[in-house]
């Protein structure tokens, strides 16, 4: 049997005393394209940080490609949210993309010719090679997002994680991005966090809805049952090009 890309077994996590995630269990097969949706503060980003090994669960077990998350670091690519951070930082597009070639075993060594060739490939792939000498802060949101994708791909990942990749970019870029990811998905397992359920349902192979608990659904449709059980995730559904609000009445506790 092939190892799962991601495995969660009864994972719990809390900040201080408030529980953010409870009883999270699911397995994701390799080659999947998973969309994670849920309300703000529902634990989406926490879930991602647990997968990446940045946070450690209070209880339960997490395996990435059969390994503990932090040991699988070189097999994961990570595209962070918020391309607006550190806008004034003096660093070029090329130097950011090269960061994807770092690893524990090569600390203190220069980047090799092979590293530079690999980075050239990925920058060409996202259409940013022509901008390699630009300071990263002078790019548009969508361009920066491409550079971060290139950086994640430069690690040659088996799983690619993207946190809200379409926040603060134009809609044209969104379509391009998901076509690009669809193509990439032929080789790489992809996990995308998004609050935009329209995008998710159109492109993903499976969906998880997280709001403290996690409902995993293999298959790209978002069921009524799923929305209900997931504490009624507030969602905006776009149907036939018309905005159509599907927001279930929310009982405040």
């Amino acid at each position: 049997m092939e190892t799962y890309a991601i495995e969660f077994e009864d994972v719990w996590f809390s900040y201080e005393k408030s529980t953010v995630l409870q009883e999270v269990s699911f397995s994701l097969e390799q080659g999947e394209f998973l969309g994670i949706i849920g309300p703000n503060g529902g634990g989406k980003t926490t879930l991602l940080k647990l997968m990446l090994g940045i946070l450690k669960p209070d209880r339960g077990r997490i395996r990435i490609l059969g390994q503990a998350p932090h040991d699988a670091g070189h097999r994961m690519g990570y595209v962070p949210q918020g391309t607006d951070f550190n806008r004034n930082f003096p660093v070029s597009v090329l130097d950011v993309a090269l960061m994807g070639r770092m690893s524990t075993s090569r600390i203190g060594r220069r980047y090799s010719r092979e590293d530079r060739e690999k980075v050239r490939d990925v920058l060409e792939k996202v259409g940013m090679w022509g901008y390699r000498n630009r300071p990263i802060g002078r790019l548009s949101g969508g361009q920066r997002q491409r550079v971060f994708i290139a950086r994640a791909l430069a690690t040659h990942p088996e799983i690619l994680f993207l946190d809200e990749p379409t926040a603060s970019v134009d809609s044209e870029f969104q379509t391009d991005l998901y076509d690009f990811l669809k193509d990439l998905n032929k080789e790489v397992t992809i996990v995308v966090i998004s609050h935009d359920i329209g995008i998710i349902s159109a492109h993903m192979k499976s969906i998880a809805c997280v709001n403290k608990r996690l409902i995993f659904h293999s298959g790209a449709e978002i069921t009524q049952e799923m929305l209900d059980t997931a504490y009624q995730c507030p969602v905006d559904l776009i149907a036939h090009g018309l905005p159509h609000r599907v927001l279930h009445s929310h009982q405040e506790e």
């Binding site: 990446l52 090994g53 940045i54 932090h70 670091g73 070189h74 994961m76 990570y78 962070p80 951070f85 550190n86 930082f89 660093v91 130097d95 950011v96 090269l98 960061m99 994807g100 770092m102 690893s103 524990t104 600390i107 203190g108 220069r110 980047y111 950086r151 690690t155």
Partner: peptide, 23 residues
């Protein structure tokens, strides 16, 4: 000089550096 690329990466994006295994 020796750890330039690590200092650069950690200063720019601490989380990413952590994920790829930089101490």
């Amino acid at each position: 000089f020796v750890f330039y690329k690590e200092f650069l990466a950690v200063s720019y994006d601490e989380e990413f550096s952590f994920v790829v295994g930089i101490p």
